[in-house]
Design a protein around this nucleic acid. Structure first.
Length: 119
DNA sequence: ACTCTGACTCCTT
DNA sequence: GAAGGAGCCAGAG
């Protein structure tokens, strides 16, 4: 019962804590974020976590894009434009709603991965 | 309980 | 690229 709820809340927090480490000017995919949070195969959970992210944490939700490099928010939504604007403000080029992962995807090295083990 | 729906992803055509 | 299908799984009706 409450055990499951705690498990879900824990998953969300792990994702938020991981998102917090994505560096300025870099991006990660939903699936990658889930993987780094220790939740392989949970890309959709990562997406939900972003939607539910507490505003007071000021998390860089806009640094998360689809695995193909495209912004995943519906193109006609205000959120789409905000994400594109925020990314550009950090120097990330966005063309036709997509980012070149080869240039901007965050690829944490071993040291960074080990550094995260404090949760 | 069951169906639908995603800010998803991978694999196969 | 695009399109279809299969995993994924918590919320909402």
């Amino acid at each position: 019962m409450t055990k499951d709820k705690n498990a879900n809340a824990d998953s969300l927090m792990r994702i938020w804590n991981t998102l917090e480490r994505v560096p300025y000017g870099r991006v990660v995919s939903y699936g990658q974020l889930a993987d780094l949070a220790g939740l392989p195969g949970r890309a959709r959970l990562a997406a939900r976590a972003l939607r539910l992210a507490p505003a007071e944490r000021q998390l860089p939700w806009y640094r998360v894009i689809g695995a193909s490099g495209k912004i995943s928010i519906p193109k006609d939504s205000p959120g789409y434009r905000e994400q594109m604007m925020r990314l550009r403000n950090e120097g990330v080029e966005v063309n036709n709603g997509r980012v070149a992962l080869s240039l901007y995807q965050w690829q944490p090295d071993l040291a960074e991965l080990l550094w995260q083990l404090d949760y």
